[in-house]
Design a protein around this nucleic acid. Structure first.
Lengths: 217, 217
DNA sequence: CGCATAATACGACTATAGTCTTATGCGACC
DNA sequence: GGTCGCATAAGACTATAGTCGTATTATGCG
């Protein structure tokens, strides 16, 4: 039995995906999640053969979420579903370990083709874009690897750093001492090959689709 | 006599623009610049009726360059020429004070139309995109205004901050004391309504098209 | 079990960031 | 000639960032 997890924060779009897939590929079992936490929970408790991941989910932090999932479950194939058509971003998504990119404007036929292709072990990109995205961004791939090597605590600290929080505030949010936050910060610097917070924020902001202030969808 | 300045770092594309314009609008006088510094020099020494600005010029720092030029020469109309088709970015470009956006894929007819329209005092956008870009990003517009209010020295310091440099290193680069750098940094914080360097870097990174590490062409 | 390793946690210490005050020189502007 | 904005910068101070050493716990492995 082949099981597929649809992770998207829009119930309507989940329904649309479910409808399109149950028609074209009725043999699939479909599961759903609406945020990153429940996505991780389901991946932990169930055997999932393919994850359809929307980058804009609550708690996902866009590309961070993809890297996070890829690190926790390297054996689960991931296809990213997103409204963007930015080829550079798609290149980053593929460099971060996604096996396919499905634009939200794709037809149900294309979606079914994409899912079938990835289940068969292929890589899938929208036909009109496959030319411009074929090459992998080496530099970004290394960056994604470095970020993936962060421990869960370090990952959280980096997220808060990217939001402009002080060490003290991060400690308060995570309920740990400021000294511990600093230890995590130092560890992050070593793993990312940098030596101060501004450079960390720059790297973290490269992993984000939209500026925090204007997330509007 | 109407004079037009073509600012683009690709000699070939400058030639192409020159060719397209001299055919369709032979009454124009055309001038060229290959980087931001010489663009500013020419705007200082000559009367320019329209600037065609590529965002990816050396020293331009993408949107920073546009804001910089808009601040120094608020009376010179600017049309941005760029390879991107990202509607969000185009919206930012227009919010930062450009009067037109010309994609590099535009036909020579469209380019001539755009130049003529802006010279006539209109705003011009590619026909296929004008629907999705009509609204101005208020938040970003305010941000651009704030950045435009920076003095030249403050602007330079912010650029170096965005590159992850320490105050000491910025002082060395600009040949001023660290105390002066700190004074500028404090002034920048007040103008941008923030209170630490991380937030400044976040704002600065929103004004950049591509991450510094992956500028490729 | 005994050992190694990684992750988390934290205090002590040093370096850097950031504020405030004050002061000087310069050019623009009326 | 006075005023204003800007750039420069010193000194003194506080807050925050960042390093280092170390203790604790959990996890994997033979």
């Amino acid at each position: 039995m082949t099981t597929l997890l649809i992770a998207d924060d829009h119930p309507l779009y989940r329904d649309a995906l479910r409808g399109a897939l149950s028609l074209s590929l009725p043999a699939l079992t479909l599961t759903e999640a609406g945020d990153l936490t429940s996505t991780v929970d389901i991946l932990n408790s169930e055997d999932i053969d393919l994850l359809l991941l929307d980058l804009h989910m609550p708690g996902s932090n866009d590309l961070f979420g993809l890297i996070h999932i890829r690190k926790l479950f390297p054996d689960v194939p991931v296809a990213v579903v997103s409204g963007t058509e930015d080829t550079q971003l798609i290149s980053k998504i593929m460099s971060a370990g996604a096996l396919g990119f499905i634009p939200k404007t794709a037809s149900s036929g294309d979606i079914a083709n994409a899912v079938q292709a990835i289940l068969d072990g292929d890589v899938w990109l929208p036909p009109n874009l496959s030319d411009s995205v074929d090459e992998i961004d080496e530099e970004f791939s290394e960056l994604a690897d470095n970020v993936a090597s962060l421990t869960p605590s370090q990952y959280k600290v980096l997220c808060f750093m990217r939001d402009g929080l002080l060490n003290k505030q991060i400690g308060y949010n995570l309920d740990i001492a400021e000294a511990t936050v600093k230890a995590h910060v130092t560890a992050i610097f070593k793993k990312l090959g940098i030596n101060n917070r501004t450079q960390a924020v720059l790297i973290a902001s490269q992993l984000e689709l939209e500026p925090p202030a204007t997330s509007d969808h």
